[in-house]
Amino acid sequence: MVNINKKECYDEKNKDRWSKEIKKHQMLYPNERVVAFIARNYSNFNENKDKKALDIGFGSGRHLKLLMDYKFETYGIDYSQECFEFASSILGDNDRLKSLEIADLRSNHYSPLFFDLIICWGSIFYRTKDEMLKDLKIINFILKNEGKMIINFRTKEDYLYGKGKKFDNNTYILDASSGDYNDICYTFLSYNEAKELLSKAGFVVESSERYDLWKNNLSEKHTWWIFLVRKGE
């Protein structure tokens, strides 16, 4: 196993690569699975007006816009200055947007039991399994009792699995063969590993899916576990 400094792996390197990707690929429309989750569980706009929602790793702001459209009191956190600047430029002055922060989740200052809904999409797997558990426990701490979260993890059948330098069990610093993902730290989990991780953090799985996407003329298989969870007792 290659000896790589952990701080270098899942903090500064990821932040730099994430910022560059946002500049190159500015996603404006929400993921269809996130849209389906919101529409299925939060269709009453009047009730949503009294609910607080957080997007962790908001990137270009596409899911923040979705939350505001559904009338949530909307909050976002991302550790990239570039993400903050881009999201701020497209979201405009909307009274449903309560706060955008440039910060790591580890610097959490949200009150316990603060959020009714949390989106954690495409962001949790940039750290090792042990570090993901720490983040998930923070998320559980700030989620209200019976609050819900949608979250995804990369599967071990993803085309990126095994590429680059192995850092930890099923965690890799991706190499040039990964294309745009070069130099990013990714962790890949089996279904049971992901489910167990959520359980250890205090979540109850309400439903789960697997989503596969073939890209670049069917040469790349991107695949994720998707979980809808609620805070446990």
Rank of each mutant, 00 (worst) to 15 (best):
E32Y: 04
K71V: 09
L136I: 06
D95Y: 13
K166V: 07
S208Q: 06
I90Q: 07
N41W: 11
M132D: 01
E8G: 01
Q81K: 11
F203D: 01
F114N: 14
G202T: 08
P30I: 02
E73Q: 12
G162C: 02
Y75R: 01
F153Y: 11
Y172L: 11
N192T: 13
G202Q: 07
S190Q: 09
L100T: 12
V34G: 05
G61L: 04
A103R: 06
D55L: 03
S190W: 02
A194L: 10
K137M: 08
E85D: 15
Y110M: 09
L213D: 12
M1G: 08
N94T: 04
W225L: 10
F84L: 12
I139F: 03
I22E: 04
K137H: 04
Y186G: 05
A201L: 04
V205Y: 00
T223Y: 07
L67D: 02
S60M: 03
K195I: 12
Y110N: 15
E8P: 00
Y161I: 01
C185M: 15
S199Q: 15
S190M: 06
K24H: 01
R230C: 05
R33G: 01
N216K: 05
M1C: 07
K20Q: 14
E21K: 12
K148T: 13
I102F: 04
F114M: 06
L136C: 09
S99W: 01
D135S: 13
K195C: 04
P30H: 03
I119T: 03
D158N: 09
D95P: 14
S208R: 09
I90H: 05
G76L: 08
K49S: 08
D212K: 07
T128L: 06
